[in-house]
């Protein structure tokens, strides 16, 4: 087992365990914290693949941004002794079926794919390439999707401001 394999197994184990803990924990803030570890390990996987930029973005946006927002909203709304109630049995059965179906789909996809083992160096994508790709309008340019997403975010922002203002009256 090479070092990389070991690290991959470690990160994967962390992801699996904490994902399970996230959905099974009955304390909502604990669930959020476990989610943080999952995202953290995911970025670790990216670092392992030498996708440094992606890993850092994962850390900034998900771990540092979204989890903080989630925790923040939990702080505003919940008490320390609050526990989530256990959902009824039917709901749990449906959820289990959905989860198992999703897992089967994933596993089938993975098994059916033929992975070609390549032995070249991990691609060092320079940030300049990413940045140019993000802003160019040419063949591999993502300027349009980028702008569309920003419009979406703007809409979301305006919507949240309107919601927040309405509540005050």
């Amino acid at each position: 087992m090479t070092n990389n394999q070991f690290m991959f197994l470690l990160f994967s184990a962390v992801i699996v365990i904490f994902s399970l803990l996230t959905v099974t924990s009955r304390r909502i803030l604990r669930a959020a914290t476990f989610l943080l570890f999952v995202l953290f390990s995911t970025s670790g996987l990216y670092f392992l693949l030498r996708f440094n930029f992606l890993a850092a973005i994962q850390l900034t946006l998900y771990a540092g941004g979204i989890v903080v927002l989630i925790i923040f909203s939990i702080l505003l709304t919940s008490q320390i002794n609050d526990k989530l109630s256990i959902p009824p049995l039917t709901k749990r059965i449906y959820a289990a079926i959905a989860a198992v179906a999703g897992a089967i789909l994933c596993i089938l996809t993975i098994l059916q794919t033929e992975f070609v083992q390549k032995t070249f160096d991990p691609a060092r994508v320079h940030i300049r390439t990413i940045g140019e790709g993000m802003l160019s309008t040419g063949k591999y340019g993502y300027a349009l999707p980028f702008e569309v997403i920003s419009v979406l975010l703007l809409a979301a922002m305006i919507g949240s401001i309107i919601l927040a203002k309405k509540r005050k009256d």
């Binding site: 440094n52 850390l59 903080v68 923040f72």
Partner: peptide, 24 residues
């Protein structure tokens, strides 16, 4: 890292989670 500064910003933003958890 080739993304050193971004990495530092990303990692140091995690500290706030600890503060939030501690406070709550």
């Amino acid at each position: 890292f080739d993304i050193g500064i971004l990495y530092v910003i990303a990692v140091s933003s995690l500290g706030v989670v600890g503060i939030l958890l501690a406070g709550w």
